[in-house]
């Protein structure tokens, strides 16, 4: 079987492999606790082995135990923060769940390469009132920052400096800041980088009335 993480670029080739060689595939996301656990369970389910299923449960239980204190620390501090997202395509819906796990609220989402199926998934996972923009330009990004005043914007390097100029922290969502973000342990890195973004002391100086 093939396990697909990037369901934008990999689906085409996986379909061909499935057709030509009868190798099936499962879609999986390795971001966040719930999705990583689901991916492990589905892979185990596919093979149908009780041993593998048991092993998957063991891994999930152990990993949760390892990361829980750190995740709790960050969740406590990030709950209620508003987040905007502009990533390639699938990452928006991959991360909607992750944000929820950190207690954060997604207020708008943007994609450059998303197709219809991506938007279907985003819509299915979105709460009411989430604003979506396809293939935004800089002006639309500025407008979203102004309108939704997010506490964090998940985006790449090119938009990082524009957003930070408006006093909005970003986390490099393509190649990350410090350490991988995938799977259980990577989630701690992700939460840490988000926390550092939201709580960097630089932001509190920006709005000092005397120097505006």
């Amino acid at each position: 079987m093939n396990v697909l993480h990037c369901q934008r670029s990999c689906t085409y080739i996986s379909d061909l492999i499935k057709e030509g060689f009868e190798v099936p595939y499962v879609n999986a996301s390795f971001f966040g606790i719930e999705q990583t656990a689901k991916a492990l369970r589905e892979v185990a389910e596919f093979f149908g082995s009780e041993e593998m299923k048991e092993r998957a449960e063991q891994i999930i239980e152990h990993e949760l135990e390892v990361i829980s204190p750190a995740i709790e620390f960050y969740k406590e501090r990030l709950t209620g923060k508003k987040v905007g997202m502009y990533v390639g395509g699938p990452r928006v819906w991959h991360w909607q769940r992750v944000m929820k796990e950190l207690g954060m609220k997604v207020v708008f989402g943007m994609c450059t390469f998303a197709h219809e199926d991506d938007y279907e998934k985003i819509n299915a996972r979105a709460e009411d009132g989430v604003f979506l923009v396809d293939n935004p330009n800089e002006f639309e990004i500025e407008e979203c920052l102004e309108r939704f005043k997010p506490d964090l914007f998940l985006t790449g390097l090119k938009e990082k400096y524009l957003c930070r100029k408006f006093g909005v922290p970003t986390v490099n969502s393509h190649s990350y800041e410090k350490g991988p973000y995938a799977c259980f342990r990577g989630m701690v890195n992700f939460a840490r980088d988000i926390y550092e973004g939201v709580y960097a002391p630089a932001w509190k100086f920006v709005r000092d009335e005397d120097f505006i």
Binding site: Y161, R164, G167, D193, Y199, A200, A202, F211
Partner: peptide, 24 residues
Amino acid sequence: IADEIKDERGILIDAMADTFHYTM
């Protein structure tokens, strides 16, 4: 407070905002 000073302050804050992921 001179406008140039506010700019210099802003440039330092900008550099801090650009780099906090390294320092924090």
